[in-house]
Computed example of a mutant assay.
Amino acid sequence: MHTIEPIGTIHTPYKEKFAIPRQPNLAPDVITELHLIGEANNEASVRELEQFSHLWLLFLFDQNIEAGWKPTVRPPRLGGNKRVGVFASRSTFRPNAIGMSAVELKSVEIKGGNVVVKLGNVDLVHGTPIIDIKPYIPYSDAIADARAGYAEQSPQTKPVVFRPQALDVLQKSPDSEYRQLALQQILSQDPRPAYKQKQSDNKSYTVQLFDWDVSFEAIEERIEVTTIKPLA
């Protein structure tokens, strides 16, 4: 029996599972950091890594392990109603709770003797344990004529608008332009349950992003950010 130890943890704006992009590359301008730990936290372990533009991250769905798994799941892309086999999905509830994402490599930095890998296109909750990093190799990993079954097309997005109170909070942030862009890319995917995404409702939803509670409503074909408040 081999025990897998994490080689790092991810630092992202996503403080909870709600509103995380359902796949990498759906919020491309959101920057995250991978902090290496233990024996992997060694400058030699990332030597020549910056030759590659993209990486594969292997990680643990650590928040789901105790919940176990089932042989079939309901993918959001099928409206959350139809069941498919767990291995025909990217469900977070899996036999070994292992996930994999292709992400963009922004830079590799050494901060106070610690290795920090800056990444884009990450779809992971803050604190997710990373168990391996592998270079993305275009000639072998990108397959031009691959079929994607029920996920053939990229998901549709909705315009995101900010009400005055929310916009006021945004504009007072030192990195307001970046945060506004990030919120637009994240919320444009309509994080509500799949069965609600084709309809308006009168419910307010709140998601934890950055150091904020961000509340929004789905009105007709747009997402309206109603309030932004500091995390409690």
Results as ranks from 00 to 15, higher is better:
residue 35 H to T: 12
residue 89 S to G: 06
residue 213 D to I: 01
residue 145 D to N: 14
residue 95 P to G: 12
residue 20 I to S: 00
residue 42 N to M: 06
residue 131 I to H: 01
residue 161 V to E: 13
residue 231 L to G: 01
residue 183 L to I: 10
residue 62 D to A: 14
residue 232 A to N: 08
residue 156 Q to W: 07
residue 167 L to V: 08
residue 220 E to I: 01
residue 19 A to H: 00
residue 229 K to S: 04
residue 137 I to K: 00
residue 105 L to F: 04
residue 168 D to C: 05
residue 179 R to K: 15
residue 208 Q to L: 10
residue 92 T to W: 13
residue 81 N to E: 15
residue 9 T to I: 12
residue 94 R to T: 05
residue 151 A to N: 11
residue 207 V to I: 10
residue 229 K to D: 02
residue 38 G to E: 04
residue 204 S to P: 05
residue 138 P to R: 07
residue 194 A to N: 02
residue 91 S to Y: 07
residue 126 H to G: 06
residue 73 V to P: 03
residue 209 L to W: 08
residue 146 A to Y: 08
residue 46 V to E: 07
residue 128 T to P: 01
residue 141 D to M: 00
residue 194 A to Q: 02
residue 87 F to A: 05
residue 126 H to A: 03
residue 132 D to N: 11
residue 211 D to E: 14
residue 48 E to Q: 08
residue 39 E to M: 07
residue 86 V to N: 02
residue 180 Q to Y: 08
residue 99 G to T: 03
residue 81 N to I: 13
residue 134 K to T: 01
residue 68 G to E: 14
residue 209 L to I: 01
residue 173 S to I: 03
residue 216 F to G: 01
residue 43 E to C: 13
residue 221 E to W: 03
residue 140 S to C: 13
residue 85 G to S: 11
residue 74 R to T: 11
residue 170 L to M: 08
residue 137 I to T: 01
residue 153 Q to W: 10
residue 50 E to A: 10
residue 159 P to K: 07
residue 63 Q to H: 15
residue 119 L to I: 01
residue 170 L to C: 06
residue 23 Q to F: 06
residue 131 I to V: 03
residue 120 G to H: 14
residue 149 G to Y: 04
residue 171 Q to N: 12
residue 218 A to S: 09
residue 57 L to N: 04
residue 24 P to H: 03
residue 123 D to R: 03
residue 214 V to M: 08
residue 84 V to W: 05
residue 216 F to P: 04
residue 75 P to S: 12
residue 82 K to L: 10
